[in-house]
Amino acid sequence: MIIAGASVQGTAHLAIGQGCQDAFKAVDLGDAAVLAVSDGAGSRDRSALGAHIAVDAACRLLAEDIPGAEEPPEAWTRWIAGRGRRVVEEYLRAVSGVLGTDPCAGTDPGSGPDSGPDSGPGPDPGPGHSGALAATLTAAVVAPPWVAFVSLGDGFGTLLTRDDRCHLVLPPPTAPAPFLSSPGAALRVRTFVVWEPELSGVVLATDGCAALTLDHPSVRQLPLEAGPLPAERFFLGLAATLRENHGDAEPLRSRLSGPEAARTGDDLTLLCALVEGG
């Protein structure tokens, strides 16, 4: 696998002296890889730490007991569903250890289904709770021809295939998304599996990358209902560059730092795994 990732501080955060609150982590297992990106909620205390806790938990748990390539879809589906719940539970346990709260009580009642990552601090969490360390998670286990996804929040995921096509298999949500610390997060985490025999790469991104990496359907003369589409020029160009330079992430960082990427002002994080020979 060729694995490369980068995080860039958003221009809006830079203007107010706020550091980058995204995080990413990858584990190279040889014939498989685990990828995780997280977007810390800028309106919450220590959200950057929450994002790092999220990717650590995801990479640790998703690297264990990965099914074999010959396993049926049912085995993969059961495995990733169980792992998704465990990632959320481990995140809550770690955050509760930092905050000194009860992990069974939840940590962030103010970030429920009607409160997205950038929608403000929400109601007062109340005694014994904290709105700190709120973060989202988008993770994938890449074990060709399988890709298993875990998602809670507003990140998105794209598959690349050997015939130079891009497939947005995990689109950004259309409604405000919960945090890992939202009540009932373990039951609301999205998990699913894709079988793609022509897989050549997987790319995960936080929502700050949407303007740079996703096209409006009108660009391809499609109706609005078609939803966002992966910008093939971006993804295929990035994959070609990373294959040529054997995974040097500097060109990726440069793209995330360019003027086009700065339109939203949000932090940008992108992480990819490219199949060797793909």
Rank of each mutant, 00 (worst) to 15 (best):
Q9N: 11
A15E: 08
I16W: 01
K25M: 15
L29N: 00
G30W: 01
A33D: 02
V34I: 01
D39A: 09
D45C: 04
A51Q: 13
A51I: 09
H52L: 14
A54Y: 08
D56G: 10
A58E: 07
A63Q: 03
A63V: 01
E70R: 08
P72Y: 15
W76M: 10
T77F: 04
V87D: 11
R93H: 04
S96M: 03
V98I: 15
P103S: 09
G106E: 11
G112H: 12
P113Y: 09
D114T: 08
S115H: 15
G116I: 12
D124S: 12
P127K: 01
A135M: 14
V142N: 14
A143D: 09
V147D: 13
A148M: 05
S151T: 15
S151V: 14
F156H: 14
F156K: 12
T161I: 02
R162V: 12
R162H: 05
D163H: 11
H167E: 12
P173D: 05
P173L: 10
A175S: 15
A175W: 06
A175Q: 12
A177C: 09
P178R: 08
F179R: 15
F179K: 07
A185S: 03
E196R: 14
P197I: 00
G201T: 06
V203G: 11
A210W: 04
A210N: 05
L212T: 01
L214K: 00
V219W: 03
P223I: 00
E225G: 02
P228K: 02
P228T: 02
L229G: 07
F234P: 01
F234W: 03
H246L: 15
A262C: 07
T264L: 04
D266G: 01
C272H: 00
L274C: 00
V275F: 03
G277H: 06
